[in-house]
Every structure is written in structure tokens, then in C-alpha cells.
Design a protein around this nucleic acid. Structure first.
Lengths: 89, 89, 89, 89
DNA sequence: TCAGATAAAATCGCGC
DNA sequence: GCGCGATTTTATCTGA
């Protein structure tokens, strides 16, 4: 029956759940720190949005970055050939 | 113009992009309609914020059934894996 | 008491809620359509992620776009001066 | 190198970027820890998917109180605006 | 590799 | 007009 003893497995599960919840809390605290730093950045005149982009770009290795940029250029070129926006002018 | 021809692929991309942009516009128009209705609600004395909560809650209640079902399925699956019927020994 | 009559206001509220819910449904349907188009794009070999970027760029007016790009370049330059990654080279 | 000097602002930006990147790393390390715990859970026979649901539900239950409070506050606010004390009864 | 879930980021509406 | 909180959209991640 449900109530009554207290399996070893129960304790294990509780421990696991609590550890994960603890880690989530720590993660959240760090996320708040990040937010604070962005706030500070804005306070001294930097644009947080751009800083995000900058950091994202730094996180990718140079190869992947160039790859993405070049595909984007490729697509834009394809569109211009196919004739949107500005057709022949 | 960039190069000479006008690949089939170029046309495909253009079509895709335009269709998505069209859908975005329609979505935006609907969003505007929603805004209008909230404005009207406010005009006849309802609090838009509360209406938002109300709608959110109705959506959640609707979703709850599905959620319960999915959890149930999950548990059943776990049980079946844990040894189908009377411990598979 | 709660049960009993059926204020005009009640009917108004119901109508408002239902209209908003209807609009939400239509919006969702369009969102699904968008997803489908991205799926189709992927199916014929385009990278959906890049298409998203492309569409986002097209949505911004040219001025804002150039502005953002130039600030990004500015920041990258500042970092290189300040001396990360590539120090004095 | 791009220009000559090394503005104070450059240093500020560098500091900001590095702090954020550091926080990201710590966050990532914690995410890895979480993954490890799920792995361990699976190793001793728990279903990670169910544990996720469990944790999500605990978080939601915890959040529900706050939610109720916020709705209550909203309603009280609406009432107070609708004519403080008695009024339309 | 894919879809589905989770988390991060951007956007929008509100009040100050 | 600006920050704040809520919503929505995008990206990452996990499991099949």
C-alpha cells in the first residue's frame, strides 16, 4: 500500500529531485547576474542587444560564423536575382 | 544585377520568403484585431488585464486534460517497461 | 447571488472573450502555416535558420540595419583594441 | 591594429563581455551537472522524462500560490477602481 | 536526423 | 519616455 514504509528508492528519488532543483536555482541566480551585467552595460551607454549579438558571434567558431554569413549573402543575392525589391533599377 | 541568370532555386527561395512574409502580415493583422477587441472591452468597462488572465486560464484548463493524459501515458509506459504484468521473470 | 440572471454585461464579456479566442486560433493556424513553409524550405535544401535571419533583416528598414551592423563592428573593434583574442598582432 | 589608443570605454566593454562570458560558462557547467544527475537517475532505474515532469509540476505548484495572489490583487484593484466600498451592490 | 520539450531572447503593453 | 512584467518568438537541447 502506498503509505507506510519508505523505500530506499524513495530516498534516492528525493535526493535526485532535490539536487536537480538546487542546480536549477543556482542556474537561475547566474541568469540574474547576467541580466544585471546587461543592465550595467546599458547604464554606461552600450547597447545590450548588440552585446548579445557580439557574444553569440564570439561563441561560434570562426568557420561556422563565416559559413553562416556567406550563406546569408548567398540567399540575399538569390533574392535580388529573382527580382524582389528594386527589380532592375 | 549580380550575375546573369536566374536559377530555379532563386525562384523557389523567393517564393518561400514571400509566402512567409505574407503569412506574417496576416498574423499581424489578426494581432491588431485582438488589440482592437481589448480596446473595445476597456471602452465598455472591462479590465483588459483581467480578461487576459481569464483567457489564459481558460486556455490552461483546456490544456490540462491533454497534459493529464500525457502524464498518464508516461506512467503507463514506465510501468510497462518496469516489467510487464507480474514481473517478467 | 451568483446564479440567476444573466446580465447584459455578462453577454458582452462572453462575446469579447470568444472573439479573442477565435482570433488566437486563427493566429495559431497561420503560425502552423509558417512552420510548414519552413519545413518545405528545408525539404528543398534551404537552411531555415538563415531564412529567418534573412526575413528579419528584410523587415527592418535599411537605415536601422546599417546602424546595427556598424555598431557591432564598432564593438568588435573596441574589443580588439582592448586586447582580447589576438592581443597585439 | 585599428587605431592607436585604447579608450576607457574599450576596457569597459571588454570587462562586460568577459564577465558575461564567464557567467555563461558557469551556467553551462551547471547544466552539465544537471545532465549528469539525470544520467545517474536513469542508471538507478528512474525514468528521466518522468522526473522532468515531476520537477516541472513541483515548480508549477510553487508558482501557483504567487499566481493566485496576483490574480487576487488584480481583482481587488479592479473592485477598488469600480467604486470603492459598497457602491454598486 | 527529427520532432517535441525547454530555455533564452525579443517584443509588446502597461504604469510611472 | 522608460523601465517592468507579461506574451510571443526563436534557439537549444533531449530522446526516439
Amino acid at each position: 500500500m502506498s503509505a507506510g514504509h519508505n523505500t530506499a528508492s524513495d530516498g534516492q528519488l528525493l535526493s535526485i529531485v532535490q539536487r536537480i532543483e538546487r542546480l536549477h536555482e543556482e542556474r537561475k541566480a547566474l541568469a540574474d547576474d547576467v541580466r544585471d551585467v546587461y543592465g550595467e552595460a546599458k547604464g554606461v551607454g552600450f547597447d545590450p542587444k548588440i552585446i548579445r549579438k557580439l557574444i553569440a558571434r564570439r561563441a561560434k567558431d570562426a568557420g561556422a560564423l563565416a559559413e553562416e554569413d556567406s550563406i546569408l549573402a548567398l540567399y540575399e543575392d538569390a533574392l535580388s536575382r529573382a527580382g524582389t525589391r528594386g527589380e532592375g533599377a
